[in-house]
Every structure is written in C-alpha cells, then in structure tokens.
C-alpha cells in the first residue's frame, strides 16, 4: 500500500515537473522569438520579424506585445488593414498600454488621410476610449 502511494506520488511529481519544464521552455521560446523579431525589425527585416511574431501569436494568441509589434511590422510593409487589426487586438487586450495606443493612433491618422470614412474613425476612437 505504501509502495503504491509512493509510486503514485513519484508519478505525479514527475508529471508536474515535466509540465513545468515544458511551460518554462515555451515562455523562454516566446521571449526569445520576440527578442529576435525586435532585432530583425531594427534591421528593417520586416518579413522575418512578421514570421517570428506570427509564431508567437500562434503560441500565445493573447500576447498583446506580439500583436502590437506585428501591427508595426505590417504597417512598415504598407499592409494597413492587417496593421489596424493587430493594433485593435493589442489595445483590446491591454487598453492602458500607452505604446499600443500611440501606435494605433498614428496608424489611424494615416488611414484617415487615405480617406477612411468618418464613421470608421469614430468607431475606432470609441474603442480606444
């Protein structure tokens, strides 16, 4: 009986340890990917940066940082619709982050210059409020 309990405990401990390791590895991976992508973006390798941030978003769909950075990369390549979508998700996930809001605002100014309708603009402003 004691032997059984010990083996169950050991199995549970091993399982938990493995799970912990896996989660830690994922976190490290996400952080590494983000760091690498930021460096790629600084070197203006936007396609590479997008690839990395997409992987981060695939791993963690609620990663606001990656979504914001993805928005910047899309905007740099002139893909304004994708950029707006990414910024919207980032600001929805972290509404108080000043950097996400700033990027989103600036992007919207350009969209407005391109001729977006007043209604779309008001809607976006409401979302930010």
């Amino acid at each position: 009986m004691l032997k059984q309990n010990v083996s169950v405990l050991i199995s549970a401990f091993t399982l938990l340890t493995l799970l912990g390791c896996a989660t830690a590895r994922d976190t490290v991976r996400v952080s590494d990917y983000n760091q690498f992508a930021v460096k790629a973006a600084q070197a203006e390798l936007w396609n590479e940066a997008i690839f990395r941030w997409r992987q981060v978003v695939a791993m963690e769909p609620g990663n606001a940082k990656a979504l914001n950075n993805l928005g910047v990369a899309y905007e740099a390549l002139g893909k304004t619709d994708e950029a707006i979508a990414a910024y919207e998700r980032a600001t929805a996930l972290a509404p108080d982050n000043k950097y996400y809001r700033l990027n989103y605002r600036r992007c919207r100014i350009h969209v407005r210059r391109k001729g977006a309708t007043e209604d779309e603009d008001v809607q976006a402003e409401e979302r930010l409020e």
């Binding site: 930021v38 973006a41 606001a64 940082k65 914001n68 910047v72 950097y99 996400y100 700033l102 600036r106």
Partner: peptide, 8 residues
C-alpha cells in the same frame, strides 16, 4: 519616416 514602438 515615422516612429513606432516595439514592446519587448
């Protein structure tokens, strides 16, 4: 050229 912010 315009500035944007990448968050690490």
């Amino acid at each position: 050229r315009e500035d944007r912010y990448l968050v690490q």
